[in-house]
């Protein structure tokens, strides 16, 4: 069951960096958004927090694919995270949160829960 959610505009296409990530602040904390132009869908969003160090850095990792699955490598200790499922490839027991994200014209919308709004949390 999903909680009620809303699709907040977090940035625009111009903020994105092809083949790489950027970070946005949301009511649920920092989120990393990756833009992989040669894939469909081209946008992925996962938590920006690296579970191994606690630092907010995942958007600054190198993206790519392993065995066909899109991944990002943590810039600190280089573990890979599946961009679709959030699963860590090196450690079965670790998974980062994933978010739904979509392109609405030039706006990038991210699905966050309805309880808080961007303004309240910031």
């Amino acid at each position: 069951m999903r909680t009620t959610s809303q699709w907040d505009i977090v940035c625009t296409v111009d903020d994105l960096v092809p083949e790489s990530g950027i970070a946005v602040w949301t009511p649920e904390g920092p989120v990393a958004i990756f833009y992989i132009p040669h894939r469909l869908p081209a946008l992925f969003a996962i938590s920006h927090t690296d579970p191994f160090s606690g630092a907010n850095v995942l958007a600054r990792g190198i993206t790519g694919d392993l065995k066909g699955e899109p991944v990002v490598a943590s810039p600190l200790y280089k573990q890979h995270f599946n961009l679709v499922t959030g699963q860590c490839l090196e450690d079965d027991s670790v998974k980062v949160r994933t978010y739904r994200v979509l392109l609405d014209g030039k706006a990038v919308r991210l699905e966050v829960s309805k309880a808080k709004t961007l303004v309240e949390a910031a």
């Binding site: 960096v17 092809p18 083949e19 790489s20 160090s53 630092a55 907010n56 850095v57 600054r60 990792g61 190198i62 993206t63 810039p75 600190l76």
Partner: peptide, 19 residues
């Protein structure tokens, strides 16, 4: 070239343990 670089090269500085 941006997406090719390790984070240290991308941001032209060395990342420390707290980001």
């Amino acid at each position: 070239h941006v997406p090719l670089q390790d984070t240290n090269d991308t941001f032209m500085a060395n990342m420390q343990k707290n980001g």
